[in-house]
Design a protein around this nucleic acid. Sequence first.
DNA 1: CTGGGGAGTTAGCCACACCTAAGAAATTAG
DNA 2: CTAATTTCTTAGGTGTGGCTAACTCCCCAG
Lengths: 222, 222
Amino acid sequence: MTTSGLTPTAQDYLKVIWGAQEWSDEPVTTSALAERLGVSTPTVSEAVKRLAAKGLVSHPRYGSIALTESGRRAALDMVRRHRLLETFLVTYLGYGWDEVHEEAEILEHAVSAAFVDRLERRLGRPTRDPHGDPIPSRDGELPELPAVSLCELAEGAAGQVARVSDADAELLRYLSGAGIGLDGWITVVRHQAAAGVLTVEVDGRRVDLGLPAARAVWVVRK
Amino acid sequence: MTTSGLTPTAQDYLKVIWGAQEWSDEPVTTSALAERLGVSTPTVSEAVKRLAAKGLVSHPRYGSIALTESGRRAALDMVRRHRLLETFLVTYLGYGWDEVHEEAEILEHAVSAAFVDRLERRLGRPTRDPHGDPIPSRDGELPELPAVSLCELAEGAAGQVARVSDADAELLRYLSGAGIGLDGWITVVRHQAAAGVLTVEVDGRRVDLGLPAARAVWVVRK
DNA sequence: CTGGGGAGTTAGCCACACCTAAGAAATTAG
DNA sequence: CTAATTTCTTAGGTGTGGCTAACTCCCCAG
């Protein structure tokens, strides 16, 4: 219901705006959206104008873009679709966790609400996707998990992997190769801030992670 | 490969042209396509012009529209996608055979070639969809089944249901209710051509079918 | 063999989603 | 506090996919 009547492009904009809002305090700007969506700023300007006309976002001239309540609902519906689809691709079709994002990105615009509900039931109402991201409920609830980035962990501290950013498929493959996967245990051995390297121990093996990699891995302490 | 680079609309046109070519000898006209696609004739005219420019169809001015070889390949790829998806929706998500067509109609444009191949493997390389329609192979082979419409059967003759047209969901529900399903046995009891009614026997029960219903059911004799 | 009438195409319009180039606003620098 | 720079928007163009209205072509009937 909430996403019907929206074009795939509009759905994408809402999802990206939601993500930008969620993961940082910086204002959501035209250029930031253009960057993430891979389009020019005028294209974003026009699209945001259309979204505002539909009451899905607010955008004071030259100001920061924000979702309205109905915009947020639509965005979360897309996130729900995306994460359920990723779960399906892994558990039913045997995709790797590095391969699902692109496919889900397209499929999320194509499946019906009935499909999503059936899929959720069939998958056993999962609470997180293959990367550990929580799956929003049908009514827009999004469980918050108490995880922190590997970077936040002090030397000697250990944690269980709860979430890994799916933004970079290459990185996901690297992490798999290093033995890092969901629910695995990691101990931080040494911070080398200057070198931008974090040494961790996984399954008794030592692994050096660059800062981007370390930032992408979220763990639950202890 | 063969369908990539085509818009969903173009894919739909090709599929409909293929269907029109396949199921009747009548020339494929602009107005026939407009009818089936639910758009105006000028819209079809423009779209066909674009398809012809891409070498997917031939259309002599004011003449009949026909697929080229590459057009046929693309159309069959869409048919393959559609039928595999219908099979999936029934076997994995528990859809009824009357509910799958619409959903597959959208999904067929969204799934990747890799998805289709994985799905086919996962489903055990099925040869027909939930309505008995044969599923084209990846290289465009389409098994022909030796079935005839119920109408062709003489009084007293029996046959096994091999294929039911999925064009009308209402009709599919009616047939299910009457106990008619894939692989079931049917005996023709009486033709009443004047009344447009065919009396058949299914599971020991007598059922009266109207002509549209009888035409939609295909059986293998004996 | 000439007129209609119906089918098909062209013309001209709108919306969406993209672009580049140019102009307006806000912020930052001097 | 002006000036320069960055950022955003407007202007104008393209392609796809729709529409209605008007025109053109083909064919059949008289």
